[in-house]
């Protein structure tokens, strides 16, 4: 499940800008712990974002995305009150969905 995402979405001049901050370790699988044991890879690898029910962005990620990932993009259309919904899935199959309203 993880911690909630922070989502900001604002509409201006016919364009909606969506900014998302996720909470995730994004462990690369390349690091070792104090005992020299490799820390297994653990990272978000799929993202889906919807605006007003329509999928506007799908992304695939590797472990090179930073801890607590950030994603920002813009979509034509959208208006105040529209619902933004973002879902991530990680390589362990854990998933989380959060929503926000366009301002």
């Amino acid at each position: 499940m993880g911690n909630p995402m922070k989502i900001r979405a604002s509409a201006k001049d016919g364009v909606t800008e969506i900014k998302i901050l996720m909470s995730h370790e994004m462990e690369t699988g390349q690091r070792k712990d104090a005992n020299g044991t490799v820390i297994p890879a653990w990272f978000i690898n799929e993202i889906t974002a919807k605006l007003d029910g329509k999928t506007v962005m799908q992304a695939q990620w590797g472990p090179s995305i930073s801890k607590n990932p950030y994603l920002a993009f813009k979509v034509k259309g959208g208006k105040a009150g529209d619902k933004v919904s973002v879902t991530w899935v990680d390589n362990r199959g854990d998933t989380r969905t959060d929503e926000a309203a366009v301002t």
Binding site: V56, I65, S66, P69, A72, F73, V75, G77
Partner: peptide, 10 residues
């Protein structure tokens, strides 16, 4: 409808 401009942190 998505504008091809994305920002990520790597």
């Amino acid at each position: 409808d998505t504008i091809p401009e994305v920002t990520a942190r790597i």
